[in-house]
């Protein structure tokens, strides 16, 4: 039963990681690609870690997997913010399908 749940959680995690990777290739510009990279990959990894926790139960490895989840959340979001801001200041253009850019007047 436990192994079944662990396998399901890990499979879902891998599936979402694949979606993130497809998004990284298909979406047009840096900003949209980072959206796919942060969201899908973060929850994918969280799901894998939960699967690890279910597999090991209440033990050292299980708790370490649980503690890794909030750390992953904070670092992934902060890294995404830093990359987006850095890309904008470097001068990466928004895709031509973009409809709005409020940030431009703030930077110039």
């Amino acid at each position: 039963m436990n192994d079944m749940a662990a396998i399901i959680l890990i499979s879902v995690g891998v599936l979402f990681n694949i979606f993130g990777c497809i998004g990284l290739i298909r979406l047009p510009d840096v900003y949209n690609r980072l959206q796919a990279a942060t969201k899908c990959v973060t929850l994918g990894c969280c799901s894998i870690l939960l699967g690890v926790m279910v597999h090991f139960g209440i033990s050292g490895a299980g708790f370490r997997a649980l503690v890794a989840i909030p750390i992953l959340f904070f670092t992934a979001t902060v890294a995404a913010h830093a990359l987006v801001r850095g890309a904008y200041h470097f001068g990466a253009k928004l895709d031509k399908r973009s409809v709005k850019d409020d940030y431009r007047e703030e930077v110039k």
Partner: peptide, 21 residues
Amino acid sequence: ANFDVAYRVLHPAMPIRPGIV
């Protein structure tokens, strides 16, 4: 959020309308 991004990524026409607000 994950299902939202997965839907946009996998949809053949890619329904995106990006911008900074």
